[in-house]
């Protein structure tokens, strides 16, 4: 293509690619705000995966059967893997993992607020899989087509595993729902506590969402918060019937005219409070991340000191440490 004869700005050229669904790659020119938006979004997503390991990790040592224990370890380990892919995707935009982790620890970077809620009974592990991984999938499937190549490719891998997590979560609840009276109570209790936070995961309403319009134009975001939320409510309102449980919303009702479920008003005051640090577990979550990082410092130092010694011993030729 001869671009010299056509007077296009880099910005126009970029937008043209986006419009034609050509993926933007790390070496391509991109608007600085596009880069910043992506760094913010991808790192926030990576942090969510990592912080999300904590509420579920809580139950690994208490999982009620060996099979559940194994699948829960595998699930939490998957989330660590998601964090890795996403940190790598963000690194292609010119930020290091260490910087991103510092931003998480300092509170500068956010993570999904859902993980500031506590896991109080075993059914919470099922509810998280079904509702939280479920909401994440709803959010993330459109991201498999997001305009930035490395992010889109990371999301394809992640979405496959997330849908597996969701099925496992639902299966935990299904087992409880067919169990004893005490187990059914656990199940309903977990749904009651996780329902509202999970529909908050789609973020503020479109009219209160500052970044939506620009992100849609750049095709970072492809479907609006409210549309995704509605889709999620419609799916879950049906699935909860299979469990013989209810969602804690009296306003929930099928609306024939709209072809969707109506649902009650979200408590946005709670949403903004949890985001800004006042959730039940914000402090514990960050404290746990910082503790792991700080207690790991001597290990990371030892590993690099050893790698350096190896390099010197081999006269700098063999870069490969025993990693």
């Amino acid at each position: 293509m001869n671009t010299e004869s056509v007077a296009v700005t880099p910005e126009e050229h970029f937008q043209d690619k986006v419009n034609r669904e050509v993926k933007i790659e790390p070496r391509d020119w991109m608007p600085e705000k596009y880069r910043q938006t992506l760094i913010r979004q991808i790192s926030q997503h990576a942090h969510s995966e990592i912080v999300g390991m904590l509420p579920e990790g809580n139950w690994i040592t208490r999982a009620p059967s060996l099979r559940r224990k194994a699948t829960l370890i595998a699930k939490v380990q998957d989330e660590a893997g998601h964090g890795l892919y996403l940190y790598s995707a963000a690194e292609t935009l010119g930020i290091s993992r260490a910087e991103m982790i510092d931003q998480l620890h300092s509170g500068k970077a956010k993570y999904s607020s859902i993980f500031n809620y506590p896991t109080l009974n075993w059914a919470d592990i099922g509810a998280i899989g079904w509702l939280v991984d479920g909401a994440a999938i709803m959010n993330q499937v459109p991201l498999c087509r997001t305009s930035y190549g490395p992010y889109a490719r990371a999301m394809v891998r992640i979405c496959k595993e997330e849908s597996f997590h969701q099925r496992q979560g639902f299966e935990i609840l299904l087992t409880l729902s067919k169990g004893t009276e005490a187990q059914r109570r656990m199940c309903q209790d977990a749904i009651n506590r996780w329902w509202w936070p999970s529909i908050m995961m789609f973020g503020p309403s479109d009219d209160a969402s500052p970044h939506t319009a620009q992100s849609m134009k750049w095709k970072i975001k492809r479907i609006s918060n409210d549309e995704l939320r509605q889709k999620f409510v419609d799916v879950i309102a049906e699935q909860v019937k299979i469990l013989g449980m209810t969602l804690p919303d009296e306003a929930l009702a099928w609306n024939e005219a709209r072809g969707h479920y109506d649902f009650g008003t979200i408590n946005w005051e709670e949403f903004w409070n949890v985001i800004s640090g006042n959730g039940p577990c914000n402090r514990e979550r960050i404290a746990a991340r910082i503790a792991a990082h700080e207690e790991g410092a001597w290990v990371r130092e030892a590993a690099s000191a050893f790698a350096e010694k190896q390099r010197q011993r081999s006269g700098g030729k063999d870069e490969k440490a025993v990693a």
Binding site: I50, M53, L54, G57, I60, T61, K69, I73, V76, Q77, A80, G81, G83, L84, Y87, A288, A291, A292, E295, G296, A297, V299, R300
Partner: peptide, 15 residues
């Protein structure tokens, strides 16, 4: 070992 899950010295070693 599973007590380490989520608390490893870095992500790779956590995994």
């Amino acid at each position: 070992n599973s007590e380490w899950t989520g608390h490893g010295p870095n992500l790779e070693q956590d995994i």
